[in-house]
Design a protein around this nucleic acid. Structure first.
Length: 567
RNA sequence: CGGGGCGUGGCUCAGCCUGGUAGAGCGCCUGGUUCGGGACCAGGAGGCCGGAGGUUCGAAUCCUCUCGCCCCGACCA
């Protein structure tokens, strides 16, 4: 392509509305323009890059025998009502009515429609397994779109769905996806980690997320390279740091003491001179408006997803309001709460409290606390993993880091949720009706681009992996009006095209500085610069990422460029 | 939905407090000089100041309402 004929509206300054790097660069480099909050126009460069990504996705999905479909984004309410998600999705789903007043929505995912197809057509175990996928636009009415293409209301997703006769079949489909995802992200040039994820109350049994470490991310992940353990914080387990002080010895009785005005863990810690690890933190949560008392060690944080998983099936989880707490605890306010004597709600405790003794907690009387409280003796609780993993915890003796990440893919063993609720059955070998088991698997296409930019950029712009850059090579004559440079540049351009290299010729009547700046900005991995040294038969081949520049004879330039692209 | 910020040529912003009829830099167009890291000179085009209402002789500026966008939080199959 000839640059002079293309629409690549690069910006010299950063648009003020862009905060994260990938967003700034996508705008500055002329890849995208915003249409509304969380809705973007993908211009020429973005579209080229996205097509390269989707081609890779396609090849690898086809490689595991998946079949590409294309389903409607516009869905009738009925299928969503059947699965129950018409209600569950709430405000997150775009809804509309047609001229006759019928309810419709814009699809967020396509479990329902895929299952709808399957139940109409799949009759026999002989037709299984099946893997169906599509690359399609998804809509989610995000309460708060942000960070450019990272959190948007309309985006492209590769979503696939597997149908199997039994769990072993699902395991195989899942493993195939795991392998295909690794290939896809490897080919896209990303650094990523596959982490164990919460499979939630959806009836799923196993789930992995593919994450890219990035400050722009919103998910926190526990990383333990030593033990090769990687898990989303929603799910991660670890060994906490030991208590900072030993528990007092002896079979002591709880003893009330006055703590005027001391409410927080830190205040009690200071008041008693004992570390936070000696305290029991009491949290009153409401699960669908039913109270639950959750206990964790004073220095620990409860993780709401773990709490939700423990309570199971609740639609709404929230901390109790101050008035509710007073109602439930005979007038006592948060800050003096404890588990002793609590009978009007379920009491659950984090495992880190099991086996501890003579600890401190609230006395359920304002401004009083208790010491010598021993879990299991002085109060009963059910023990679960409720605490959030923290930096400094260990896993099998190895230290854990907590990193911020962006989710680029998610694979999920769905189980029977959709096949059951939507009555998908086939006949097995014995002529008996059985319900197929399903899996669902997603990849956020734009997030691959976005993460690549987050991972690979410098002060001058993007430095995209060759496989997903809009062009592989840019030919930059310093002065295109110079006949020699002109001829050489066009020669490179034609030869590169002939060899199947995605090449861009910067034939613009611009000063060299402008061309260099633009080439760096839009992130083309290799540049051949033709300038004064052409008189000696030499041109420069520049590696965008390393900034390495080598002078090579004209005849060797394309070869050199190819060697960089292959690396 | 709570909190904060911002809407003025394509972009970045000034002007607003203290009302008097709109500016700069970049970009764009024309001509010329330039030509290895976002050139220079000269000339030029381009803005119902987000929208509506109000106060006033007069509103970008003051008041009310409204819409949009960004950030923090809540939320995130």
């Amino acid at each position: 392509m000839q640059w002079s004929k293309l629409f690549i509206p690069t910006l010299r300054e950063n648009p003020v509305d862009a905060e994260v790097v990938s967003h700034q660069l996508l705008l500055r480099a002329g890849y995208i323009r915003q249409l509304a909050a969380g809705v973007y126009n993908y211009l020429y460069l973005a579209q080229r890059s996205i097509l390269k990504i989707t081609n890779i996705v396609r090849e690898e999905m086809d490689g595991i025998g998946a079949q590409e479909f294309f389903l409607p984004a516009l869905n009738p309410a009925e299928v969503w009502q059947e699965s129950g998600r018409w209600d569950v999705m709430g405000q997150n789903m775009f809804r509309l009515k047609d001229r006759f007043g019928r309810d419709l929505c814009l699809g967020m995912t396509h479990e329902e429609v895929m299952t709808y197809i399957a139940r109409g057509e799949l009759r026999s175990y002989k037709q299984l397994p099946q893997i169906w996928y599509q690359i399609q636009t998804k809509f989610r009415d995000e309460p708060r779109p942000k960070s450019g293409l990272l959190r948007v209301r309309q985006f492209t997703m590769k979503d696939s769905y597997s149908f199997d006769i039994d769990a072993a079949g699902l395991d195989a489909a899942y493993d195939k996806h795991h392998a295909a995802y690794c290939k896809i992200f490897d080919r896209c040039g990303l650094k990523y980690i596959a982490v164990e994820a919460d499979s939630g109350a959806m009836g799923g049994s196993q789930s992995h997320e593919f994450m890219v470490e990035s400050n722009a991310g919103e998910d926190f992940v526990a990383v333990c390279d030593g033990a090769k353990y990687y898990a989303n914080l929603e799910k991660a387990a670890s060994v906490p740091k030991p208590p900072a002080a030993p528990d007092p010895e002896g079979d002591l009785e709880p003893e009330k003491f006055h703590t005027p005005g001391k409410k927080t863990i830190a205040e009690i810690s200071e008041f008693t001179g004992l570390p936070a690890t000696s305290q029991i933190k009491s949290l009153v949560m409401m699960a669908d408006n039913k109270p639950v008392l959750a206990l964790v060690r004073g220095d620990h944080t409860m993780h709401e997803t773990k709490f939700a998983a423990t309570v199971g099936g609740a639609n709404e989880i929230r901390p109790a309001h101050p008035e509710e707490i007073r109602d439930l605890f005979g007038g006592t306010s948060a800050g003096s709460l404890g588990p002793i004597g609590v009978t009007n709600m379920r009491v659950i405790a984090d495992k880190a409290l099991e086996g501890r003794k003579n600890m401190i907690c609230g006395a359920n009387i304002d401004d009083y606390h208790l010491k010598n409280v021993t879990p299991g003796e002085d109060f009963k609780a059910e023990y679960f993993d409720l605490r959030q993993v923290e930096e400094g915890d260990t896993y099998e003796g190895f230290p854990i880091r907590v990193v911020k990440t962006v989710e680029i893919g998610h694979i999920f063993k769905l189980g029977y949720k959709y096949s059951k609720s939507m009555n998908l059955t086939v006949l097995d070998q014995n002529g008996k009706e059985v319900t197929p088991i399903m899996g669902s698997y997603g990849i956020g296409v734009e997030r691959i681009l976005t993460c690549a930019i987050e991972l690979f950029h410098d002060k001058d712009g993007m430095s995209l992996p060759a496989a997903i850059a809009p062009f592989e090579l840019v030919v930059t004559p310093a002065n295109f009006a110079d006949p020699g440079q002109h001829e050489t540049a066009v020669g490179f351009y034609e030869e590169a095209k002939r060899q199947g290299i995605d090449v861009l010729l910067d034939d613009r009547d611009e000063r060299p500085g402008v061309k260099f700046k633009d080439a760096d900005l839009i992130g083309i991995p290799v540049r051949i610069t033709i300038g004064k040294k052409l008189a000696q038969g030499v041109v420069e081949v520049v590696n965008r990422r390393t900034r390495e520049s080598v002078d090579v004879p004209v005849a060797e330039a394309i070869e050199k460029a190819k060697s960089i692209l292959r690396a």
